[in-house]
Design a protein around this nucleic acid. Structure first.
Lengths: 246, 246
DNA sequence: TCACGCATCTGGTCTATACCAATGAGGTGA
DNA sequence: TCACCTCATTGGTATAGACCAGATGCGTGA
């Protein structure tokens, strides 16, 4: 109350170990080439046990300072990518504008019956078949997002013949003369499991952001739906109504 | 691959303990009045140690099935509140429309120098004083969000004399004849610490969603800025460009 | 040259136990 | 009646040690 201010007092609840690691991280003493030493080594360095150490690392992970790759190790997080789900500018361009480098990998592109919830979103009866495109993207070489698209098989009859590692937005415009219109989306903080977790090389249960979006063309017809699964520390959502929705 | 499908196989990575708790939760065997038994009792019931049990509970917490109140215990999460940060309908109305019941508590309403980042957002020089209003809200009696507002002292000269447990939106319109115009906001997944964590009764480092918003009137003048800190499992963000921004 | 297999490294899960610290209920005394 | 104090309860943090399982790199053999 006197000088330490109520706020600071409340803030100082995290363990000493966690604070120590924070300082070492901030001053660059901990990570070699953004990679932290093995847990056993860290535990020894901080004179504690792996359990306790992992507890502290988990906190820093939730705080977005570090992240882990499943059974591979811990790494220092880079700054967040600023992302506006209303803009359908392609990923490459978006990252370039933030002086970062992106890449996309195609995981699969097949015809498949969509789950009921996806069919409902796309306003089609349960059991409808769609093109299902699964991809994952890196920013500055780090895997940050897994994306699953569902597209109408009739509207995009020959899409599997196209290059699917690039921008679908551009494909829509250039090959199908379709422009985006309205969008709706939903953002949920969730635990990453199953395929998203596996493809992003993160441990099961790692925290993430799910963004499910339904895109329409200018006539209001539903074009596709995509579910994105982001590593939570890699993204910051920003929306400004003054920007409009190009 | 045959019938178990690749997806399921990848999904089954979580521990058996975690699965057991999931089942018991789903079938209502675990919680009495939404409150889980003490950790020690649970550890005994599942024939494991508290460490292991807490690991599993943390996973379920990240998945949004349960949450904890600091040193108070574990509780079963209710369904998420659907929230559109572009709509400035008041909280009471929003919750009522979802058949839920909301309440707001005023924590403080004072004049204070805003931090530099807030001053920048409000396009005022560092060190500017604003009204600082801190509140927290409950949905169905559960604390779900802590909100910190910063308002211009000149535009809202006598706002401290108003009832600050209600809707600021309504106050703006009724007492100051101000209508909202453009909005910009930023959503960040972060760890809750300090005052937000304390006021929400959650342990330091609990996962949350931060939503920082800058509101303007119809002339484009900045009205105020508010930073919301949500319990991550209590909210789902939804935006639809067809709704417009009333 | 390249595919395969094995050894090793690393995180993931688990047992057993102890003490610290905030909460909250109940009792005490003004 | 009500403020205060005490203490049992409950989570929060920590130690010490073990084995499991995926990821990786290296070396072998075709």
């Amino acid at each position: 109350m006197a000088d330490g201010s109520t706020n600071d007092m409340i803030t100082q609840r995290s363990s000493k170990l966690e604070q120590a690691i924070r300082v070492d991280l901030a001053e660059g003493r901990l990570a070699v080439d953004r990679r932290l030493p093995p847990e056993r080594e860290l535990a020894e360095r901080y004179r504690t046990t792996r359990i306790t150490l992992r507890e502290a690392l988990s906190h820093l992970e939730m705080d977005g300072l570090i992240y882990r790759e499943n059974r591979r190790g811990w790494f220092v997080s880079d700054r967040r990518l600023v992302y506006n789900p209303l803009w359908r500018t392609d990923f490459q361009r978006m990252t370039r504008e933030q002086n970062r480098q992106a890449s996309t990998e195609l995981i699969e592109a097949v015809s498949a019956v969509a789950p009921d919830d996806i069919c409902a979103l796309l306003e089609q009866p349960s059991g409808t078949e769609f093109w299902r495109i699964r991809r994952r993207r890196r920013v500055d070489d780090r895997l940050v997002v897994f994306v699953e698209h569902h597209l109408s098989k009739t509207v995009f009859a020959d899409i599997l013949e196209q290059d699917l590692t690039g921008s679908l937005t551009n494909l829509y415009r250039e090959k199908y003369a379709l422009e985006y219109g309205d969008v709706s989306f939903e953002i949920n903080p969730i635990a990453l499991t199953g395929m998203p977790a596996a493809e992003l090389h993160c441990s099961n249960g790692t925290f993430g952001l799910q963004i499910v979006r339904v895109n329409r063309d200018q006539a209001g017809r539903i074009l596709d739906c995509d579910a994105e699964y982001w590593r939570h520390d890699a993204v910051s959502i920003r929306i400004d109504t003054r920007d409009g929705t190009p």
